[in-house]
Design a protein around this nucleic acid. Sequence first.
DNA 1: CTCCCTGCAAAAGTTTTGCACCGCT
DNA 2: AGCGGTGCAAAACTTTTGCAGGGAG
Lengths: 146, 146
Amino acid sequence: MKTEDATDSLKRQGCRITACRRAMIEILFGSDCRPMSVLDVEAALRTKKLRVDKSTVYRELSFLCERGLARMMELRGGQAYFEAVTGDHHHHLVCTKCKTVSEISAGNLEASIRRFVNRIRKAERFVVADHRVEFFGLCRKCALGK
Amino acid sequence: MKTEDATDSLKRQGCRITACRRAMIEILFGSDCRPMSVLDVEAALRTKKLRVDKSTVYRELSFLCERGLARMMELRGGQAYFEAVTGDHHHHLVCTKCKTVSEISAGNLEASIRRFVNRIRKAERFVVADHRVEFFGLCRKCALGK
DNA sequence: CTCCCTGCAAAAGTTTTGCACCGCT
DNA sequence: AGCGGTGCAAAACTTTTGCAGGGAG
């Protein structure tokens, strides 16, 4: 799912496409799907020369989550992070030193996870809708002692 | 690592074992390592007939994190979750409806993850120290429409 | 006796909500 | 023209901090 698909999806659902909404979609879907905090989104909006109130950013992000276009990630440092739902599964590398989050495509790990999900359904009767894998450690820079 | 090991570890580090601290360790390590929010911990303390201020709960939890006895999970819902660090790797089933978090042992998924971690180290030069896998969906009760 | 730990109170920070008005469809 | 979306202000919550008093070692 890309920027245009997302706006189309909203149009089909009868939602209005305003400048603010379009910008936020572009920001989220154009971020390499890196999770962004509300502050990150605000900063990106400012770069686009758009003045948007913080409460609107919050409202819009939960709006996108309700429509299935975004997902709330966990909080890091006391604030929520959001990322675009693009369909292709990827996971995150979190550097515990410089706090940056990069994404990594799941590759052949997905097959193992699917098998595991099946076991969970049978053993725990838990219906898995989604999953998330995160790796914590040191990014290339921090590992080199920068 | 169990309750006694945790308190011993603190004693060896020269920390005082107060009633409040002992109770919180018992709560965290006796919870099947289910992540608990500050509110959960407060409730558990009340059950133990201990009146502890919320700021103390926050302070004690970050204290335990600093000493490596607890870990901050930061799950959804606007508040932080903490879990005991027991050494054995397990992952979480998060019910998106009733918000309960249960744990599941990693089983043979771990082997696949280890292989993946090796690939990450080579391909991205990212040094992975830890990882976390979470599954989202409906627990048995909620799936049955309760 | 000494300091770590704790409660209280208040500050700081994040997210939600109410309301009026603007502008997309 | 109707109603969804937005800014502003304030409320609601979560987490942190300063300070003084009390208890573990």
